[in-house]
Simulated scan of single mutants.
Amino acid sequence: MPHPIHDFNRQIIEEFRANHGRVGGPFEGGRLILLTTTGARTGAPHTTPVGYLPDGGDHILVIASAGGSPRHPDWYRNLVTHPQVTVESGVFTYEANAVVLAGEERDQAFARAVEVDRGWAAYQEKTDRIIPVVALQEIARPGPPNINASSPGEAITLVHDVFRRELALIRKEMAAHAPGGSTLGAQLRVNCLTFCQGLHNHHTGEDLAMFPFLADRHPETVPVLDRLRAEHEQIAALVEKLREALADPDPASVRTEVDRLTTELEAHLTYEEEQLIPLLDGVRH
Results as ranks from 00 to 15, higher is better:
residue 269 L to I: 08
residue 236 A to W: 03
residue 18 A to C: 08
residue 202 H to C: 03
residue 205 G to T: 05
residue 7 D to R: 08
residue 262 T to G: 13
residue 6 H to R: 15
residue 84 Q to L: 07
residue 240 E to L: 11
residue 165 R to E: 03
residue 58 D to F: 03
residue 65 S to C: 04
residue 66 A to T: 01
residue 110 F to A: 12
residue 35 L to G: 01
residue 170 I to M: 13
residue 13 I to W: 01
residue 159 V to S: 04
residue 209 A to W: 04
residue 85 V to M: 01
residue 248 D to E: 15
residue 115 E to N: 14
residue 28 E to D: 07
residue 16 F to L: 09
residue 264 E to N: 03
residue 271 Y to W: 09
residue 59 H to S: 12
residue 57 G to V: 05
residue 78 N to L: 07
residue 24 G to A: 10
residue 218 H to A: 02
residue 160 H to Y: 02
residue 193 L to M: 15
residue 200 H to W: 06
residue 188 L to H: 04
residue 271 Y to F: 15
residue 161 D to A: 05
residue 34 L to Y: 01
residue 205 G to W: 04
residue 51 G to K: 12
residue 66 A to K: 01
residue 144 P to T: 00
residue 126 K to S: 15
residue 138 E to G: 10
residue 252 A to W: 06
residue 68 G to E: 00
residue 14 E to F: 02
residue 176 A to P: 01
residue 215 A to S: 09
residue 144 P to R: 07
residue 10 R to A: 15
residue 52 Y to V: 03
residue 126 K to H: 12
residue 266 E to V: 02
residue 202 H to D: 12
residue 123 Y to F: 13
residue 87 V to Q: 04
residue 235 I to K: 07
residue 53 L to A: 09
residue 158 L to N: 02
residue 238 L to P: 00
residue 127 T to H: 12
residue 213 F to K: 13
residue 268 H to N: 07
residue 186 A to F: 12
residue 179 P to K: 07
residue 105 E to W: 02
residue 190 V to T: 06
residue 23 V to C: 04
residue 189 R to D: 15
residue 265 L to K: 03
residue 140 A to D: 04
residue 206 E to P: 11
residue 148 N to Y: 00
residue 169 L to D: 12
residue 177 H to A: 15
residue 208 L to S: 02
residue 165 R to A: 00
residue 111 A to E: 14
residue 231 E to M: 07
residue 48 T to W: 13
residue 10 R to L: 15
residue 33 I to F: 05
residue 18 A to Q: 11
residue 229 R to N: 06
residue 196 C to Q: 06
residue 254 V to G: 09
residue 153 G to H: 06
residue 108 Q to Y: 06
residue 138 E to K: 14
residue 40 A to S: 10
residue 134 V to C: 10
residue 81 T to R: 13
residue 225 L to P: 10
residue 236 A to P: 04
residue 284 R to C: 02
residue 237 A to F: 00
